[in-house]
């Protein structure tokens, strides 16, 4: 019976290690926040050009990630890009907050950076950010730069 006992202990350890690994994957590798689905509210911003922004791109405030891009669509009348964002509900934003699309590093991915204004009122869920700055498209910047340089000559 000793044999069965060690066997049971080893099986127990194996299962415990396996479950620990699953937890490790959930928490350490993917940073699962169990309540993230319920604990968010949606805000929308319109950009002239949302550049390389993708669904799940980070939304940050003062360099801290406070949400993710939930959906990107196009307004068929104004031809603007409509970016829906899920913001964690612990963060309240003033209603004159502005949104810009920046790039992390030269080749890094693009993210939405929020700049709070000074208003006393807060953005409601499903609120819209009016002040936006589009993504900087590298080719355009380089094009303008070259144009200026040639104009100088």
């Amino acid at each position: 019976m000793q044999n069965t006992k060690t066997q049971d202990i080893l099986v127990g350890l194996f299962v415990a290690f396996g479950i620990a690994a699953l937890f490790f994957m959930a928490m350490q590798i993917s940073n699962l926040n169990p309540l993230s689905k319920e604990n968010v509210y949606t805000i929308t911003a319109r950009f002239e050009n949302s550049g390389g922004l993708k669904i799940k791109s980070p939304v940050s405030l003062a360099g801290v990630r406070i949400g993710r891009v939930a959906n990107i669509s196009i307004d068929t009348s104004s031809f603007e890009s409509i970016v829906e964002m899920h913001i964690e509900s612990q963060y309240q934003l003033p209603d004159d907050t502005s949104a810009s699309i920046f790039t992390a590093g030269l080749l890094g991915e693009q993210y939405v950076s929020l700049e709070p204004g000074g208003s006393e009122e807060f953005l409601e869920p499903n609120g819209v950010i009016d002040i936006t700055q589009s993504a900087i498209v590298l080719e355009e910047v380089i094009g303008q730069f070259l144009f200026k340089e040639t104009a100088k000559d």
Binding site: G18, F24, M25, Q28
Partner: peptide, 15 residues
């Protein structure tokens, strides 16, 4: 039962 546990171990230890 064992396969997902083994795969999780493999990935975690690989990371």
């Amino acid at each position: 039962i064992a396969m997902p546990l083994l795969a999780a171990l493999f990935s975690s230890i690989g990371v």
